[in-house]
Design a protein around this nucleic acid. Structure first.
Lengths: 211, 211
DNA sequence: CGCTGGCCAGTAATGACATCA
DNA sequence: ATGATGTCATTACTGGCCAGC
């Protein structure tokens, strides 16, 4: 209202005095199957458009739909397609080009946003999963500890005859590792805690070592 | 070198007839903690807006630096600050406002990008970690299996031979571990014993060797 | 109530630079 | 070496929403 002396929708842009008229006079279109880009020389014929300097801001919905559809087909815009579109929509080819550029930019940032939320949920799942695995590892280690203790006990029992002087390991529940070390040596521990080094140990020989 | 035909920097700004003298005479910094937004009433001087479009595009580096610095102080822009900046830089207050809006937008998307790559690396680490944990779990299960096998073997051996009637060694056990077992109950044990079912069978037969 | 002015998201357009034909 | 085009970053503007007077 106040600073909108500009009646926008019907407003004409005066910004183009320099309609690039200085451009080539040599049309000459090449048929050479150029993989990409290039060729586009002439620039005069479009006077028929509404004088480049008078462009509306905001394209009509129809125009946008059309462009959008065209964009889905192919994000890149070759000269021919551009000119065709421009003609069909009654736009300056430059506008079409600009539209595509902006559209690509928009597309990129939208993409990023999507990627982000995708990654985000994936990440969240992983965190949960990781947590689960961690507790599982803990649990397994604990169980393994128990088992080893048991084995040790049985072995002792066997060697000493019967369980005469059995000293409850309860006192040393936390120093198990130390006991282990004494009995099984370092590698056992390594196996337990750094299991990833050689997955699938095929623990057969492992067993035999300790009997 | 070649495409610098545009002298751009010498383009005149017509926007500054009105040095915004109309600015507030009642600065009145509110103590009232107005959550947001200020008042701003008069609006007269700006009438000359229509030639807007002839503004120089691109602010000078100095102007940008100044604005940038101001932006770091505070992303929001109150009228007073806006007018002050505009005056100092010889810009239309509107331009300052626009600049800040655009700057905020840029900041946001940059932020998003940062967040993304942060999340990304975090995620990647997690994947590796998860993988490591998975193999560790496998390995632990295997080891546990071995241990249990060994225990069975020893128990059998003992029964067949000396056969002391020692029962359930785990009963005697220690505070921590007992609690642990109790907590997870039988299923924990099940997991251990039948671990192979779910993952990587690999070597079912050797089980039989020992029983 | 309505008007005003700020915020934001979306767009159009421009300028600068890189490339390729 | 020149021009058409692409990308990036920027400037500007529109329109919708909302808060405070």
């Amino acid at each position: 209202m106040n600073h909108q002396i500009i009646e926008d929708d019907n407003m004409v842009l005066i910004s183009q005095y320099y309609p690039d008229i200085y451009t080539q006079l040599v049309p000459q279109q090449g048929e050479s199957k150029p993989r990409r880009r290039r060729r586009k020389k002439n620039k005069l014929g479009e006077g028929s458009d509404q004088m480049m300097m008078m462009r509306k801001r905001k394209l009509s919905e129809e125009q946008v739909n059309f462009l959008e559809q065209s964009f889905e087909d192919e994000h890149k815009l070759e000269s021919e397609r551009k000119d065709k579109l421009a003609a069909e929509l009654g736009l300056d080819p430059r506008q079409v080009a600009v539209w595509f550029q902006n559209r690509r930019a928009r597309w990129k940032s939208k993409k990023l946003e999507e990627e982000y939320s995708k990654l985000k949920s994936e990440h969240d799942n992983n965190v949960v999963e990781k947590c689960r695995l961690e507790t599982e590892v803990l649990k397994l280690k604990e169980q393994l500890n128990e088992s080893e203790k048991e084995i040790k006990r049985l072995l002792l029992e066997r060697c000493d005859g019967v369980s005469s002087n059995y000293t409850s390991p309860s006192a040393s529940s936390f120093s198990m590792e130390a006991q282990f070390l004494g009995e099984f040596g370092m590698e056992a521990l390594d196996n337990v805690f750094y299991a990833q080094e050689n997955n699938y140990v095929q623990g057969l020989d492992w067993v035999n070592l300790y009997i």
